[in-house]
Each structure stands twice: as C-alpha cells, then as structure tokens.
C-alpha cells in the first residue's frame, strides 16, 4: 500500500516539476501491444539486441568488406577490434587458447556494442540487466569448467591446490580457491550489469535535476562529465569481461600454476 501511495506522490510531483525515475529506463516492455511478457515476446530487449547485431554486421562485415591493403576507416576499426581481442587471447591464454578466439570475440563485440548503444539517449541498455550478464557469465563458467575437466581430467582440480604454498596452508587455500571459483560467475556478471546500471541511473538523476532552473547548468555539466566517464566505462567493462574470460580459460587449459 505504502509503495502505491509513494508512486502516486511521485506521479503528482511529475506535474509539479522535480521527479526521479532513474530506473524506468531499464524496464522491459513489449514493443507491440501491452500484454504480458512471454519468452518469445518481441520487446525493447529484442529491438536493442537486434540493433547490436546490426552494428556488428555493419562494422565487421560491411566495413571490412574491402580487404584493402590500405584500410578504410571502418576497416581500420574492425581490424583494431580484431587485433585487440586476438592479442589479448594470445597474451593471456596462450597460443592454444586461440581456438576459442571467436567465442571471446563474440562476447566482447556484443558487450562493447551493446554498452555503447545504451549510451544513446532513450536507449535501452541490454547489458545493464543481470539476466543478460548472468547468462553470459554462467556460459563462460560452465564452458570453462567442462573444458577444464575434458582437457585435464581430474588434474583440473590441481587449480585449487596451490603447490607453491607451504603444505600447512594448502588445505585452507584450497577452500578459499574453491569458494572464489564458484563466486566467479557472480562477480563476473554483477560487475558488468552493476556498472552499466549505476552509470545510467546516475545520469538520469542528474537529468532530473536539470528541470530546476537554478541548478540546471551544474546538472548539465555533471551529465556531460558522467557521460564521458560512462563512455570509458562501457569500453573498460567489455574489456574486463573479455580478459577475465581469457583468464578463466587459461586456468582451464593450464591448471598447474
């Protein structure tokens, strides 16, 4: 009841001026009609993921179409992204990790493009949803765990047994390692979703303040600054997600420290 009352209050406030709806931008809504959201309902999630696919196709397929010796601008960006992720996989995971390069590239491109698209005004940020990031993090976690056991058999368990530590400490460390191993997907997914959500919500809060004439300039300055920071965060979070995936992959391929 109480929430209902507050909502009504804020609705009233909307008419008077200052009102905060920082979380409204994250609502999943059906694109057509107003029915319940089923599994296959076409929602704003569908729209923005489709736009993500479109941007990736435009950049990586259409942009890199020429295969020129001297690249065009779009081709340069595509090659930069390719080289960036390729080198990251090679450096972190090693040569034998390059087989998994397309998977990591898929994750990286999806996250970085979705993050940047989410920065557009009125956009819906798919990566700000824990449902999205958790699926990716769990996929990475399961894939890496299965791969570890397939490649190394039970030897994969040595990832928890730190042979360089003193023998007395090893069981305790093993316990910590096991816990940290299972926390990985949680931190992996919440880091991305949390960063995206927080940044967008903060921008929205500042935007609400812009309605008040007196503090509008400061608010707009703050939005600009936050926007710049969010642009950086969008890239960094995609990078962090990808590099952590590489690190987990390395553990699976080479469990012996």
């Amino acid at each position: 009841m109480k929430e209902g009352k507050t909502l009504a209050d804020t609705k009233d406030a909307a008419e008077t001026g200052l009102v905060f709806h920082p979380m409204d931008q994250f609502q999943v809504k059906p694109l057509f009609g107003d029915g319940p959201i089923g599994v296959f309902t076409v929602t704003n999630v569908t729209l923005w993921m489709a736009l993500t696919v479109l941007v990736i196709v435009l950049l990586m397929v259409v942009g890199a179409r020429g295969r020129n010796i001297v690249p065009t601008r779009m081709q340069s960006i595509a090659e930069l992204a390719y080289g960036f992720v390729y080198k990251m996989v090679e450096d972190v995971t090693g040569k034998d990790g390059l087989v998994y390069f397309p998977y990591i590239m898929t994750l990286f491109m999806f996250i970085v493009v979705a993050n940047f698209l989410g920065l557009l005004p009125m956009a819906f940020t798919t990566t700000s949803h824990i449902a999205v990031t958790a699926v990716m993090a769990m996929a990475v976690f399961l894939a890496v765990t299965i791969l570890g056991f397939v490649k190394n058999g039970l030897g994969f368990l040595s990832v928890f047994w730190i042979s360089s530590a003193p023998l007395v400490l090893r069981p305790i460390l093993a316990l910590i390692e096991v816990i940290s191993y299972f926390v990985r997907p949680v931190s992996h997914s919440i880091r991305l979703a949390g960063n995206m959500m927080a940044g967008h919500a903060v921008i929205k809060v500042f935007a609400a303040f812009a309605a008040v004439t007196l503090i509008a300039p400061a608010s707009i300055l703050a939005i600009t600054a936050m926007y710049a920071l969010e642009t950086l965060v969008s890239f960094i979070q995609a990078y962090v997600f990808a590099i952590l995936t590489c690190v987990y992959l390395r553990d699976a391929l080479h469990p012996h420290h």
């Binding site: 959201i37 089923g38 993921m49 696919v53 990736i56």
Partner: peptide
C-alpha cells in the same frame, strides 16, 4: 518475469553474432 524473454533473445543474438563473426 522478464528473465526468460531476455535470456531467449540474448541466446538468439549471441548465436547470430557468433556465426556472423
């Protein structure tokens, strides 16, 4: 209530991106 929807479209998106890439 929106989780299945998001997960479904995410999987579709990732599969498309993977094959395109």
């Amino acid at each position: 209530s929106t989780f299945p929807n998001q997960m479904f479209w995410l999987v579709v998106t990732l599969v498309i991106i993977y094959f395109v890439l």
